[in-house]
Write a protein that binds this DNA or RNA. Sequence first.
DNA 1: GATGTCTGCCC
DNA 2: ATTCTGC
DNA 3: GCAGAATGGGCAGACATC
Length: 466
Amino acid sequence: MRKAFKSFKDFIEICSRIESTSSILKKQEILAGFLKTLSRDEIKPFIMLISGKIFEKEERELGIGYRSVLSVLKRGKIRPLLEEGPISMVDVYKRLVRISEIKGESSIAKKRMMLHGLYNMLSSEEREYLTRIIFGEVRIGASEGLILKSIAEAIKAPLDEVKRAYLMIGDLGETAEIALIGGRNGLKRIKMKVFNPVKPMLATQARDVKEALISAGGRAAVEFKYDGARVQVHVKDEVLRIYSRSLIDLTQSFFDLADELKGKIRAKEAIVDGEVVAFSENGKPLPFQILVRRIKRIRKLPEIAERIPVRIFLFDVLYVDGKTLIDRPYMERIRVLESIANPDILAHRIITSDLKKAEDFYERAIKLGHEGVVVKNLLAPYILGSRERTWLKVKPAETLDLVIVGAEWGHGRRKGWLSDYYLAVYDDERDKLEIVGKTFKGLTDDEFREITRRLLSLKVAEEGNT
DNA sequence: GATGTCTGCCC
DNA sequence: ATTCTGC
DNA sequence: GCAGAATGGGCAGACATC
């Protein structure tokens, strides 16, 4: 027998109640209460809609963005509420899934048509929320953290249990389903699994090596920080997959690396963490912009792969042959990593309490063309998906004397300022300036204001946006 | 086939 | 990625 | 200090349009 699903209007009502209370505890109570009333088929759609994600782990994209919504809204003829009866929350979710599935010729027109149809069934308030869901901007104060708390409250489980489960499966909807249907026992059964990527641990910034070494406990590991893409490698028997920081499968983009790695990780099953870096023929690391040409590339991938060879540098291990290692101290994980991985795929690292040695190591990293170093506490566990102070990255504030030779007007928040500067180095031998790149980073808003003022006073020409 | 628009994801 | 803001 | 929200450039693919 089919259960009576909650209507989309009920959903909107919950959203607006949550939005209009400022108390976090109250929000949590409302959410937890609503979660308990849902039937099992409604849990996932509800979570996805309220978190504004629609899809999390699935390899799916909506293909509807700002432009499409605008065009549909402009079409007008949207009348509040036709006589079709209330649409259910699950139905709205299913329609969004269907829109995402449309592909091929005139798919954009079809997507927009379906979206138009959906808008036509909604009241103006409902339309407003749907638009926000599509943009992933629900912003009612029901973000990831609050949803996790609400799930915990709904099943009377400690927050840590829910969080742990969420981090292992990486999907809020699934976590809610397991928690609400299977309870605490269900959550406890969740384990880290190969080919189920998890959110990587992140580092916080430190001013210099000295500060980092002190805050990491005096004696610490110092690793090269590479200018590349963070990846997680999963292996089981002869199958190997490479995932991005946001859990996207990048195995195809790095097919050559994937092949090479199969022979270099000696474990039946493993999940390891590292950085993929592009290298030039002469063994020098190439900047991230070069590497990114391979990411999600399909056209002429084999040629590009040959022209842009990549290497990987592993610096952690989360799981090996049935054992989850994330709660183990850093040193222990490193020992395991060294026992299963070939030395040539390991990140460069020293362990020291000597500031001079750490600083020399940092200088060496820079000299070799890397970004800097990451200083790591030897006892730190691997906290999934979290930016921790047990890992401290140190990057140079300035390494080159550059001249700004051009600038573009900024967009959005930087409108009215010159951002995105063309930088040049002075070439002594040829007595001229050579453009070496562009940047937009590293400045505060005040500095942008100041630079804009100074650049305008030095301006020699303006052309279009540049 | 070339070019432009839109979207999503790497930093 | 960086930066700002409210807690 | 933290989490969340808002912001940046640049890349590639899918599709639309000419």
